[in-house]
Write a protein that binds this DNA or RNA. Sequence first.
DNA 1: ATAAAAAGTGCATTATAGTGTTCTTTTTTG
DNA 2: CAAAAAAGAACACTATAATGCACTTTTTAT
Lengths: 71, 71
Amino acid sequence: MHFLSIIEAIKARRESLQVTQKALSDLSGVALGALKKFESGRGNPTLSTLKKLCDALGLEITLSVKKTINP
Amino acid sequence: MHFLSIIEAIKARRESLQVTQKALSDLSGVALGALKKFESGRGNPTLSTLKKLCDALGLEITLSVKKTINP
DNA sequence: ATAAAAAGTGCATTATAGTGTTCTTTTTTG
DNA sequence: CAAAAAAGAACACTATAATGCACTTTTTAT
């Protein structure tokens, strides 16, 4: 899967808040196993799971029209 | 589920491009059933499914730090 | 007003995400 | 360095997303 930037945004935010995976799991209600799998790049979370993590981390999910030339 | 803004972003973009659900299904590789379910508000797509739709629509998914007071 | 197209609904099946647990590896701390 | 904490990996089980299909309702065009 190619969610690298999303994975990294979650991870970076979690680390900048100095929250452990376990703590984020508790805060967000997402199972620790799922979080570990996702952060280690082997996950494909549902939008609901992603949103729980974002909510807990004070992140918002935005869809915007791409302005760059097709990569 | 509470993905209203995301659902609407997808729908609005699809309509502004004048693409039917069937055409978007073909373009993105997401099954028509899944797309219909999602757009009608009864879905919880995986990130991979959401990304396929966004890629086909020229949308990008962004995570950013919320600037508002906790709602 | 009617036909055609698009959108929405429901269902059975398959694939896989989420959960909970245990274990291993890595990182941090004293 | 050793102990503790955190991160990563692997498993069986459960829940549910994705698929493909058939059907109904709504919208659009003639």
